[in-house]
Each structure stands twice: as structure tokens, then as C-alpha cells.
Design a protein around this nucleic acid. Sequence first.
DNA 1: GTAACTGCAAAATATTTGCATCCTT
DNA 2: AAGGATGCAAATATTTTGCAGTTAC
Lengths: 136, 136
Amino acid sequence: MDIRRRNTKTKQMIMTVLSDSSSALCYEDFEKQLSGTIDKATVYRILQGFCDDGKVHKISGNNGKTYYALCHHCNSGNHNDNHIHFQCIRCQTILCIDKQFSIPVLPPGYRMTDMHCLISGHCPDCFNEIADYEKK
Amino acid sequence: MDIRRRNTKTKQMIMTVLSDSSSALCYEDFEKQLSGTIDKATVYRILQGFCDDGKVHKISGNNGKTYYALCHHCNSGNHNDNHIHFQCIRCQTILCIDKQFSIPVLPPGYRMTDMHCLISGHCPDCFNEIADYEKK
DNA sequence: GTAACTGCAAAATATTTGCATCCTT
DNA sequence: AAGGATGCAAATATTTTGCAGTTAC
């Protein structure tokens, strides 16, 4: 039923960028790291394919952009990314915090299939830079 | 320092739509409910103003749209919406689940200012409709 | 009267789609 | 050779901005 995917150099490049990153990436990040060598449409299509295969999950940032990060506990058709994401409100970086936490109780009749928890705040770097700036 | 806001009929209409709704609303929802009487730019500007005043909070849906809902525990400049949001993957409705839950522990150095937790799944209505459909 | 508000049009941003061509299997 | 993959251009979707005219205070 599912599409038979091919292992292309383009996909490998995108996978490498994902693997090398400690934070989740938006399209802009891929564009920068790949110096625009891969077309926008292709990047989005490949990332969507990875999501469909359960290799990558999407995170909706608080800035209207979609971020992508490698999955560690997922398989095709059954995502299991019930961990926390942190987005810095200054540098916009999104980090996956790989710590499962108690699943909240839903009202009767609601069925959960997925959970995205996005915490906003300052990452250590930005926090320090702000502190340094305010000292002066 | 802050802008002195005026109490206009337009703002009242938008506030009424928000008050009357049990779920969070995206621009499209306002457009429908107001039959397009208020310009798009105005709707967005008013909603942003409400957010700045701490009356409304934004939720980034998993569909790339921004949803808006009334705040209950917030004040200007200090949002406190650490509750859970639920979005149905079928009808896209977003509900605020007004139940505080244990705040997750962040790695050292990370400072939290806000948290958005979005659970995806099926709302009772959609779940039943799917179940009914599958019976046939 | 003044500054905030509104509507209209246009711009900006993010993502998707159609299609011709290319490349993996 | 067949069908998935890619690049290019154009389309779509969402949100924002500039500006001129309007309105609340």
C-alpha cells in the first residue's frame, strides 16, 4: 500500500542535517545549512515523507513555522513523541527535551493520539546574553 | 507607556464571539461568525491587542493556524496559560482544558516563561461519527 | 483636536501543487 | 522501462503592513 521510497543523495543530505542537529529545524534552517542547493518544494516533500515513515516529527513553533526533528521512539503510522519541546523566545531555537512526563487527563470521550508540549522561555545562551547586556 | 485603547463596537463584537465560544478560534472562525463584516487586518490587529492586554492567548494549532481563546488567569504582560489545549484531528476544533498540571522540569539554565501543551486526537463527536461510519 | 481605530490593497511569509525532466531500481 | 524524485514556477494559505480616511475620547 505504501509508496516504495528511493534512497537518494538528496534525502541523505537532509537526513544528515537532521542527525547533526541537536535542535529541531525549520525550512529556513535547512536552506542555510544546504546553502539553497535543494529546492524548497523538495525539502518540504522529503520532510513530509520522513514524517509519514515515522522517522521525523513536526513541531508547530510559536512563530508560525513548522519545525522538524528526528523521532526516537516512533514507527511508521504510529508516532509517539510525547515529550516536551522548548522554544527560546529570543533565538527561536527549538529543542526536544527527551523526558516523558505524566500524561494529562482528558475530559470523558476525548481520545488522545498525540501530544505536543511547547515550552517558551530563554535558553541558557540567550539568558546570559540578556543578563550581560543589562549589567552595562 | 502602554497605548490607551478605545472601546469600539468592532472590538466588542470580537470579544462577544470569543466569549460565546467554548473552543479556541482561528481567523476563519471569526470571519464566518461575523460574516466577513470586519476586515481581516482589523481582526488580527484586535486579537493581537487583546493578547498584549492579557485578555486572550494564542495557540499554535497543528495545522499551521493560530487560534485565540480568552484568558482566565492572565494579566497584561504576564500570561499564565499553563493549561492544556486539545485539537481534534478531524474537525480541527481546539478546546482549552482548564486543568493545570505538573510543570515539567527543564534542563539546567533554561527559563520558562510560557507553556503550550497541545494534545491531538478525536473529540467525542468525531469519535462517535467515525465509529458509526465503521459499523456500516 | 489628537491619537487610536478601521478598511482596503498590497506585501510578506510559509507551504503546497502542477508539470516536465531526471534518476533509482 | 516504470515509477518515484527533483527543480522550477506558480499557486495557496496565513498573517502583516502602509496608508488614507474615520471615530472615540
